[in-house]
């Protein structure tokens, strides 16, 4: 199985959905259910962290390969 750090946001979201659905089907033994729940809580925390870590960045590559802030987009309707 792939390591947790390698999972994309989408894969984690899919896993969490699967866990919730398997619990909602109600066919799991208690121990397994609790185990799934803990996995679910962990995935939720990771997804939350992924979203929190995101940060707006609009950059442009210069000819020398440097990255600079790109201001071109912020015109009349600059509402941030």
């Amino acid at each position: 199985m792939a390591k947790k750090v390698d999972l994309s946001f989408e894969e984690k979201l899919k896993k969490l959905e699967d866990i919730v659905e398997s619990l909602e089907n109600g066919e799991l033994a208690l121990e397994k259910a609790v185990d799934r729940y803990q996995k679910g809580v962990r995935l939720h925390a990771e997804l939350q962290a992924d979203l929190d870590r995101m940060e707006k960045r609009v950059r442009m590559l210069t000819e020398e390969g440097r990255e600079v802030e790109f201001e071109g987009a912020a015109d009349e309707d600059d509402d941030q």
Binding site: L23, E24, G26, L51
Partner: peptide
């Protein structure tokens, strides 16, 4: 979406 999944998760396990 992420929050709703968490709510469903908690509700299920509380019931169990």
């Amino acid at each position: 979406g992420v929050r709703i999944l968490r709510d469903r998760l908690d509700r299920e396990v509380t019931g169990l």
